[in-house]
Computed example of a mutant assay.
Amino acid sequence: MTTAQTLLKVEGLKKHYPIHGGIWGRRVGEVRAVDDVSFSVRTGETLGIVGESGCGKSTTGRAILRLEEPTAGDIRFEGTSLLSLGVEAMRRMRRELQMVFQDPFASLNPRKTAGAIIEEPLRVHGIGDANERKQQVKELLQVVGLDSYHAERYPHQFSGGQRQRIGIARALAVRPKLIVADEPVSALDVSIQSQVLNLLEDLQESFDLTYLFIAHDLSVVRHISDRVGVMYLGRMVELADRDELYNNPIHPYTQALLSAVPVPDPDAKRERIILKGDVPSPRNPPAGCAFHTRCPHVMDICRKVRPEFTDQGGGHFAACHLTG
């Protein structure tokens, strides 16, 4: 990346869900879905966030947009703290921040046509009159690779890939600066995934977009991202430029994830790192390093002291005692 301007800065983000039990429904615990996550996103870049299911990556994306209200931390967009904004101010800010959801069918209203779905954010934000909005809808459909007559069809009349294109068009309607893409291709056929990824890359250049791209497929993330962050049990454990992270992973969890990525060369040899045990419950995470229960290099300090998420050199961040 050539630009160094920070568009989004997340500091100490936490999202805990209370657990209630007993006859009186008292609070008996909490699920720490996101537990002290910090990172920044530069203007024009794509930051990928990866990790196993349940690691908190989707909750992180939703908390940034305040679709889930954070428990603690700060989220700054162009220097403005999003958590300080009232309801009306946050509604206006959503013109700059949009989301593409994982399930393209569940995220579209089945009772509305594609045109009405794409037009809705324009109406909500008072952009243009009726004729101008309809013209913009036609243009947006063409931008995402659909024909203008598709505006009259309903979501069930489209394929999965086409529905995701409608979701992307809806996100683009208000010309946002940042799009949080929450596993936007995981529900699609492999043959369609590459088409949607290429579309996202083309749109990024045409609309000057910045992406926070959330996924569990490391191959997909490597294709589209400039930098990659790895999450485990609600925490960021490693963050680096794409090639640096894939060629020189520091954290044992990242090393294990990358060892599982299929290699297209049948003659290539790669040592597979098999992690023992299961991911601990976010209701009762382990003391010290959250990964120590499965780490092949665990030390005594790992069981007691949580490692700091620090720069190991050249913008390569990691939270691991092995680097200390």
Rank of each mutant, 00 (worst) to 15 (best):
I301P: 12
I250T: 09
R66L: 08
G29L: 11
P18E: 15
I250P: 07
Y17L: 08
I75K: 08
H297G: 08
R66S: 02
G29E: 12
E96C: 01
V50H: 10
D103Y: 01
A169D: 06
Q5H: 12
L13N: 05
T59Q: 09
I214A: 04
L97Y: 07
Y149P: 06
M90N: 08
E205N: 07
L200Y: 04
F39M: 08
V279E: 09
D217M: 07
I250K: 12
A290I: 03
D74F: 05
A319N: 01
L212Q: 03
M1K: 02
T293C: 07
H297P: 00
G145P: 11
L239D: 13
F39D: 02
F213T: 01
I168G: 05
I49G: 02
T310K: 15
Y17I: 01
V228H: 06
V10P: 04
V305C: 10
N248Y: 14
E308T: 14
L65Q: 10
G324H: 15
L218D: 07
G315T: 09
C289T: 04
L122R: 00
L275M: 10
E238A: 11
E88C: 00
I168H: 03
V50S: 13
E11L: 13
N109P: 12
L172A: 08
K276C: 10
R94K: 14
V87A: 13
T71V: 14
S191K: 13
I168P: 08
R91P: 05
A89S: 15
P264Q: 14
I224K: 04
M236L: 15
V124C: 03
R294L: 06
Y211M: 08
A114G: 08
R165P: 07
K112P: 07
G29K: 12
K304W: 02
R92Y: 00
R123V: 11
T323G: 00
Y149I: 05
T80H: 11
R32N: 04
F291Q: 11
K112F: 13
N131Q: 14
F101H: 05
F309D: 03
T254E: 05
I179L: 06
L97E: 08
G22H: 09
S219R: 09
V185T: 03
W24A: 13
V190H: 14
G86Q: 09
H150L: 00
W24Q: 12
G288R: 02
G234T: 07
G73M: 05
Q135E: 15
D189H: 09
Q204D: 07
S186L: 12
R91K: 15
G315Q: 01
P104D: 01
A130Q: 03
P110Q: 10
F77G: 06
I274P: 04
K276I: 03
R283G: 13
Q142F: 01
M299P: 01
G288Y: 12
I274V: 15
A169Q: 06
P249F: 04
E96L: 03
D311S: 15
R227D: 03
